[in-house]
């Protein structure tokens, strides 16, 4: 079943019911909000959106970490994974939140310390803290692109 929602990036759009992910504990700093739509408007784009259904202005850009960083394995205690009914990271879709500065989008960063895990079968998700303290809160995504390209 599809439904019409208000989104920050795209205005009114139609989504499928199975795009709705329930975050029982919300996201850090936004604990009150629990229902988000996982939006992939451009299937080719690496960037996806988590649009809050309870507040139109609340939308996060997310990306799969393996697209810009290799060997990223967030360490999350099994007791916390249990809250989204998975036993290991591999059972979940792992995404990280992207921050894009208005001044220079090329300096966009991803939050590897606070990954989002989604159980795609149950449509439930959560934001977790990776206990690997080498995972930065602000990891430059286009780091490798900074080397000047030959013209």
């Amino acid at each position: 079943m599809s439904l019409l929602i208000e989104s920050k990036p795209f205005g009114k759009i139609e989504i499928e019911e199975r795009q709705i992910i329930h975050f029982a504990n919300g996201l850090f700093g936004f604990e009150k909000y629990s229902r988000y739509a996982f939006i992939e408007e451009s299937p080719d784009s690496p960037f996806k959106w988590l649009q809050c259904l309870e507040d139109k202005n609340l939308a996060f850009i997310v990306i799969q970490p393996e697209l810009f960083t290799s060997s990223y394995h967030p360490i999350i205690p099994p007791s916390e994974l249990k809250t989204i009914k998975v036993t290991k990271n591999e059972d979940a879709l792992v995404m990280v939140i992207v921050t894009i500065p208005d001044t220079d989008p090329n300096l966009m960063t991803a939050n590897l310390q606070g990954p989002i895990l989604i159980n795609p079968k149950e449509l439930i998700g959560g934001q977790f803290i990776s206990r690997d303290e080498t995972h930065p809160v602000r990891k430059l995504i286009l780091e490798n692109n900074k080397t000047p390209e030959p013209v």
Binding site: P9, F47, D102, N111, V137, R138
Partner: peptide, 23 residues
Amino acid sequence: EIQEENRNAVNTNINPRALDKLG
């Protein structure tokens, strides 16, 4: 720090087309 970074992330005002270009 994570709470603060989430707030920063939400303040992103990039339009979706520009974002696709970045992609």
